[in-house]
Amino acid sequence: MNQQQSSRVAWLLPSMGRGGISWQHILREFTQIFPNTRVFTGEWVGYVPGFEDSFELQTVGRTQFMETGKSNQGYGFGFSYASPTIIYHLFKFKPQVVITNAFSVWSILALLFKFLGGWRVIVAYEGGSPNSNYETNSLRLRSRRFIVAGADGFVANSQAGKDYLINVLGANPDKIFCRPFLVPSLDALLRSPQADQERLAETLPRPIFLHVGQIIERKGVRTLLEACHQLKTKHLPFTLLLIGDGEQRPELEAYTQTAGLEDAIHWLGKIDYGALGSYFRRADVFVFSTNEDIWGMVLPEAMAFGKAVLCSKGAGAAEMVIHGENGFVFSPNQPQELADLMGQFLETPTLATAMGAKSAEIMTAHTPAAATTIFTAAVEHVQRAV
């Protein structure tokens, strides 16, 4: 039995709610390499169809987010409570390595007890954003620097995340393994490939732009609709499909009517994750207009389906876009800039196909199996350092 097969690895993911889907692809691949892996979470919505029982999971307590402040344009402020009984479960499981998500309470507890438990700690960092980096909050920075000082290794999902770990939190660059690991599984997105095809009739005017996400202010949907309003002055056909729901939808639907966009805008509401692939396939261009997103899984999902992409600089995933090659990046809250970029796809019908081919080429290096190699490398690194 080799070391990978015998190593006991614990993953601490306090929240695997809506966003937990992006972790399941990695966990399935990782468990095939390290079969003695157990995932601990305080929020669980179930396996993605097709991933049932592909990794062992145990719920511990209940994770809750305590909001201390709001931001209209970005993430709110607050902290997450996760059960301290995770330590009991770790001692019972007896891992050699603990992979913990970012700067949670569980990360602090894993580090406080790591010498007593005899495990090594790897911090997995999805990335940051202006509101989630807390660079002006001295208490938050001290707690994060404590975690960074005690961790044995890091896995960063983005170059910006790696820079934050080094330049703000003082991490040792030699301990950081960096590459995008929040990448899609096409299999999971195509579990229901025939879903709702009647809504996507072939008669829809092209190009078809697609937006997937919550209809809330942070996602910048208002900017996207204002850009569509400006596009109407070109008197060229186009369609925008909006997948998702949220508190801002009634306001924006009213704006759509006022702006005379009813024929171009289609509100599709919530769609099952396993049916999203069929919508990505039908679209020509994916638009991610967010004001602030730590990453934005929908962008690499669109790229994996070979789509041209328009991505706001407010998304961490913007670093996946090679401006002018597989799409364009633009400033958030700038509808004219976005309208000008969207207009290029109206005026040059072949542009979406060419850029989409580049997206598909880029994503050949970003499969779940490829992304898992960075966690394997990190685990082997910290075990060699024992």
Rank of each mutant, 00 (worst) to 15 (best):
R8C: 05
V9M: 08
W11S: 08
L13E: 11
S15M: 09
I21W: 05
G42S: 03
E43G: 07
P49H: 01
E52W: 02
T63G: 13
T63W: 05
T68W: 08
K70N: 12
F77P: 01
G78C: 10
F91N: 13
K92Y: 02
V97H: 11
T100R: 06
N101T: 07
N101A: 13
V105R: 11
L112K: 14
F115W: 10
F115L: 06
W119I: 01
V121K: 12
V121H: 09
E126F: 06
R144Q: 14
A149Q: 14
A156S: 15
S158A: 11
D163W: 02
D174S: 13
V183H: 09
D187I: 08
L190F: 07
D196S: 13
Q197K: 14
L204F: 12
R206A: 07
P207W: 04
Q214L: 14
Q214I: 07
E217C: 05
V221C: 09
E226L: 12
A227L: 09
C228H: 00
H229Y: 04
P237N: 10
P237M: 09
I243A: 03
E251V: 08
E251Q: 10
L252E: 03
D263M: 11
A264L: 03
A275M: 07
G277T: 00
Y279I: 12
V287W: 08
S289N: 11
I294N: 09
W295T: 07
L299R: 01
F305G: 02
G306M: 03
K307F: 04
G314A: 06
A317G: 04
E319K: 05
H323F: 02
S331L: 06
Q334M: 08
E337R: 06
L338W: 03
Q344P: 01
T350V: 10
A354Q: 15
H366E: 07
T372R: 06
I374V: 15
E380Q: 15
Q383W: 12
Q383Y: 04
